[in-house]
């Protein structure tokens, strides 16, 4: 902002006929093109001249840089050697081994403790699981036995029924009597219906008088 004001001031100083009239206002460009703009067409093939130092300066610069590189290289090597040697001295192999062993023993103790705890919990868990599985097996056995018993019961019931029914079976001994009975008691399934829907049984044989006349009603 200050810069802009300053520029404004400069303008007013240089242009004597400066008036605040916006009609005569001219924008002034300061500085260069924005960085993101490409190289101007007119500058595209311009190659700026190579920079050449005066001979004296070139020689002096080369001398200073050569000297600097040598010194830095030497100091670097000195420090590397010094600290690598110091590190080697500080490293005691026996002590290091001892430390490793002590550390191992400590770790081993902790590990054993953990193993003990885990063993305890594992045994408890296994015991519990075993009991549960035994109980489950018992339960399943009982269920299975019950099913078997039921099956036997139904089978026996069926056998009993068949046995009962077998009393009426026609055996060779009873065959003649059965034939005799069948001849003496013919069964006539024929029947007739009258207009009232009464069922009149028998066509060639007389129906037994016991039988009540049935009535058939027409279904709606």
């Amino acid at each position: 902002m200050l810069k802009a004001l300053n520029n404004f001031k400069l303008l007013s100083m240089t242009c004597e006929t400066f008036s605040p009239n916006s009609l005569y206002q001219q924008s002034v460009r300061w500085g260069r093109k924005p960085l993101w703009f490409p190289t101007a067409k007119s500058k595209l093939f311009r190659v700026s001249p190579r920079k050449r130092l005066p001979k004296e300066e070139e020689v002096e610069k080369r001398r200073l840089y050569n000297s600097y590189r040598t010194q830095v290289k030497s100091i670097k090597q000195y420090l590397e050697e010094k600290y690598s040697l110091e590190n080697q001295e500080a490293f005691d192999e026996e002590k290091h081994k001892m430390e490793i062993e002590e550390d191992f023993i400590q770790c081993s103790e902790i590990n054993d403790k953990w193993n003990e705890e885990i063993k305890k919990s594992r045994e408890e868990r296994v015991e519990k699981e075993l009991q549960e599985s035994i109980e489950d097996a018992k339960r399943r056995l009982e269920k299975r036995l019950k099913i078997y018993a039921e099956q036997r019961e139904t089978a026996e019931e069926a056998v009993r029924q068949v046995k009962e029914a077998s009393q009426h079976f026609i055996t060779p001994d009873k065959l003649d009597a059965a034939i005799e009975y069948a001849i003496n008691n013919p069964v006539d399934y024929n029947f007739a219906l009258d207009l009232d829907g009464n069922k009149i049984r028998g066509r060639e044989t007389k129906p037994p008088s016991k039988i009540e006349p049935e009535k058939i009603s027409a279904k709606a």
Partner: peptide, 14 residues
């Protein structure tokens, strides 16, 4: 000679 530090210049006019 190899100098430590600035050393001896070859171009004293500078």
């Amino acid at each position: 000679e190899v100098y430590s530090g600035f050393g001896k210049t070859k171009s004293p006019s500078l």
